[in-house]
Amino acid sequence: MNFQWDNLFRSSAREQKLISKLRENMLFKDLSTRELRLVENIVNIRTYRPGEVVFRQGDAGVGMYIISKGMVNIYTEAVDAATTEVSTSQVTSLREGDFFGDLALVDPGNRRSASAVAGEETTLIGFFKPDLIEIADRNPTAGVKILLRLGEVLGVRLRETTLKISELKKDLPA
């Protein structure tokens, strides 16, 4: 095996894979190949061991993560006021292609509302506020496309939350 060719091939495949991962994501759906290349050069690839914390509930957040490979468990912690005991409950498990922490991209004083912990060997694509600002600076069209999609994502989340609140209100005694 010629190692040089082997490495070249792998690098190119990895780049293709990252671009296709980004293209699959809701936020980057509308971007052209050139715009995706810009995003590809800006996002941050992070790897996590099983059990490694991505962020903790209450941390200040500056961006979102897309799961490129692996699994992330989302937990919430609640403190019992009487006993000051902390109870942890798993909210959900996110898999390849899912994304989380998107509110931190637009909320200046954002605090993480839950903890995220890698469930297995996990690769995340980190997309943070400074990255979004850089994209908007260098290619405003791409920036607007991402922001419109981000607005859509947040709108859907708001609609779901409102629906949940309405359902809960129905259950309350009059």
Binding site: N44, R46, E52, V53, D59, V62, G126, F128
Partner: peptide, 17 residues
Amino acid sequence: LGLVPNSLFELILNLNH
């Protein structure tokens, strides 16, 4: 920044910006 540990990454990235 790739060398920064995961636990400090967001802080250092934001600080740098």
